[in-house]
């Protein structure tokens, strides 16, 4: 694109969508389930930030002599098989789970929106080829993809790990510390997970873009001489934002669920780190004897997923263009 168009796409005054955002926000606030979900999610997130930081135990501090104990005043959620404080581990695992949800969704968002909008907007042969690829990938067993990626590219000293260390080196001098390796593993696996879950996003965006492309206001923009790229960026995508946000909100729990599933299979987060999926999976093994080791992480995970799903539904209602039109 030439300098000409960069001048056009400069943001003009305050955001054009402000009243729509305000409108949607007002409608969302009327939806009690959605507001409650938002509040619970906020509280959980806060807990995940604060509890491991302020708690008197570390997430990896073992006390083999203590072993598993039920909830008590000293350990509100009890301790696990290695005598680690479960509450700290659960909230620490929450950090990982939330991060996974957000990172993977962001990845799938970027790929899916780009792919879908290009296919939908330019149409015809480009669209046909791009969507055939998506169809083919749909039938590609994505689990294998994730597993293979994680074994092949994400090993210690592997290509991607080295790149990660270099990037991390910009922020901290301790980047080479091997204790950062599990962190890298998580980040990597879930970026890969995001890359595997953009397909539906691409389909949704394409559908939206095709519908919007047929709208007269797109033709109107073309008739005043706007370029195709600026029409896509200034007119089509902002109007497609509603369904995109909704689907992104619904992707977060889906990805968290997949991470839990992978951890269950021993492929996701690794000890001594924790994620809700890993905690629940190891809790499930001893649930008949030490039920609390399963109950707390499983409950946290279920509540979070429940809230994200409710929030997504609430957003869908709030952003529904048909309601907006009336």
């Amino acid at each position: 694109m030439s300098a000409a168009t960069s001048g056009e796409s400069e943001p003009i005054e305050d955001a054009g969508g402000s009243t729509f955002a305000a409108d949607a926000w007002r409608r969302l606030r009327k939806n009690r389930a959605a507001v409650a979900s938002l509040a619970v999610l906020g509280a959980l997130l806060l807990g995940c930030i604060l509890v491991p930081a302020l708690g008197s135990y570390g997430y990896a501090d073992t006390d083999l002599a203590l072993g598993p104990t039920p909830p008590s005043w000293a350990h509100w959620m009890g301790t696990d098989l290695f005598g680690r404080d479960l509450m700290v581990r659960v909230f620490f695992g929450g950090r990982v789970s939330f991060a996974v949800g957000v990172v993977s969704t962001a990845v799938s968002f970027v790929i899916g929106v780009t792919w879908g909008s290009v296919a939908g907007f330019f149409g015809r042969r480009i669209d046909a080829v791009m969507m055939r690829i998506v169809d083919a990938l749909y039938t590609f067993p994505f689990l294998i993809f994730v597993i293979l990626l994680s074994v092949f590219f994400a090993n210690q000293g592997g290509l991607l790990h080295r790149a990660f260390v270099r990037v991390l080196g910009l922020f901290t001098a301790r980047a080479h510390d091997p204790s950062y390796f599990p962190v890298f593993q998580i980040v990597f696996v879930f970026a890969a997970l995001g890359a595997a879950s953009w397909l539906t996003m691409a389909r949704i965006v394409r559908g939206q873009v095709i519908a919007l492309r047929a709208q007269p206001f797109v033709e109107a923009a073309r008739s005043i001489g706007a370029t195709e790229a600026s029409i896509l960026v200034r007119h089509v995508l902002p109007n497609a934002l509603g369904p995109i946000i909704v689907y992104a909100t619904l992707t977060v729990p889906e990805v968290m669920l997949t991470e839990a599933f992978l951890s269950f299979l021993g492929l996701g987060t690794q000890e001594p780190l924790a994620s809700w999926g890993l905690l629940a999976a190891s809790g499930a093994e001893t649930m008949d004897v030490y039920p609390w080791v399963l109950v707390f992480p499983a409950l946290m995970l279920a509540v979070t997923l429940f809230c994200f799903n409710h929030l997504g539904d609430g957003l869908r209602d709030a952003l529904d263009p048909r309601i907006r039109k009336d």
Binding site: E8, P216, E219, A220, N239
Partner: peptide, 25 residues
């Protein structure tokens, strides 16, 4: 255009809408 509602981008103000051709050119 025939349908004045559909041919105006719903997320733009009147100012932005009428100014758009001036910015584009």
């Amino acid at each position: 255009f025939q349908d004045p509602y559909a041919s105006l981008d719903p997320r733009m103000t009147v100012l932005e809408l009428v100014a758009e051709p001036l910015l584009v050119h």
